[in-house]
């Protein structure tokens, strides 16, 4: 069996703000790991005799079971003054980590799954948008996405047409840039960091960097958790649980261009942990 290249990627395993010296047991790609605060105040990720590399960034502790060939991706907006950073917490989902990311990249489900919040009938049409695999960054990008939303964010008052951009810098992470209702010209940043516990089980850690000085933190967290719990009812009922990379298995349309590019990019890199290569 060939070495799975996803082993060398960085994954979130906990919130920096929740680290403790006692620590917590969790799982990464089937490997039990312990996440704790070291004596010098540094995060430690260990498993019996092994100690794994660690990065603290974007509110989360990141680690890798392999030998990361590059640094964790950058989010320049995470250092921009005036933003509020929201640790949304964790949602455990019985699905492939890749299915969780693909759902995050999808806008056509808004009117049906996030009804009257992120979408509403009859505003179901997905206009043509642009998708590319940026070779230099080795990232999937979708831009110029426009969609009507009844309540695009906690800070939105009434329906607006929101503009979206999506970025996939790692196989189980995606970053969404969307119209910022209180500050036109800036983008709100909402991320989905997925911890693959196994091929069919994941912990999802949404994180946000928003321009919103008024909404209480608890309301921002509740809003995002509500959205993600609605998604979970979908993710746990897709068959097969693994993401099918065989084009004959599922039927995409033009609205699914981001998903098609994501699947192609996964296949190109042999990022197949959580994927199904041949229809069964």
């Amino acid at each position: 069996m060939t070495r799975q290249p996803m082993i060398d990627e960085w994954y979130p395993v906990g919130l920096v703000s929740k680290l403790s010296t006692t620590g917590q047991d969790t799982m990464l790609m089937g490997q039990p790991v312990h996440v704790a605060l070291g004596n010098g105040g540094e995060p430690l990720v260990t498993a019996q005799s092994r100690r794994f590399p660690v990065i603290s960034r974007f509110g989360h502790v990141w680690t890798s079971l392999g030998e990361p060939k590059k640094d964790l991706f950058a989010i320049p907006e995470a250092y921009q003054p005036g933003r509020r950073f929201v640790d949304v917490g964790v949602v455990r989902v019985r699905c492939s980590p890749l299915r969780a990311v693909e759902n995050f990249l999808d806008i056509a489900h808004f009117p049906f799954v996030h009804t009257d919040i992120l979408g509403a009938e009859p505003h179901t049409e997905v206009q043509r948008y642009e998708v590319e695999i940026r070779e230099r960054e080795d990232e999937v990008w979708a831009t110029k996405i426009h969609f009507y939303q009844p309540q695009a964010a906690k800070s939105a008052e009434g329906g607006i047409t929101t503009e979206y951009m999506y970025r996939v810098p790692a196989p189980t992470c995606s970053i969404l840039y969307k119209t910022c209702p209180p500050r036109p010209g800036e983008w709100d940043v909402i991320t989905l960091f997925v911890q693959p516990l196994g091929e069919e089980l994941c912990d999802v850690w949404p994180w946000m960097a928003l321009f919103d000085d008024t909404t209480p933190m608890v309301d921002l967290i509740h809003f995002q958790q509500l959205i993600f719990l609605q998604d979970r009812s979908i993710l746990e009922n897709q068959m097969p649980r693994l993401l099918p990379l065989d084009p004959a298995m599922e039927i995409p349309t033009r609205a699914d261009m981001t998903s098609v590019a994501y699947r192609r990019w996964l296949k190109r890199h042999n990022y197949t942990y959580g994927a199904q290569l041949v229809a069964q």
Binding site: A108, I234, P240
Partner: peptide
């Protein structure tokens, strides 16, 4: 079949309007 051909969602979670069955994921 309890599987939408689009993205594999269970159609039994969907809804009936008039003479058609709709998938809850993308309608």
């Amino acid at each position: 079949s309890n599987r939408c051909p689009h993205r594999g969602m269970r159609l039994s979670h969907g809804f009936v309007r008039g003479e058609n069955l709709s998938c809850i994921y993308h309608g």
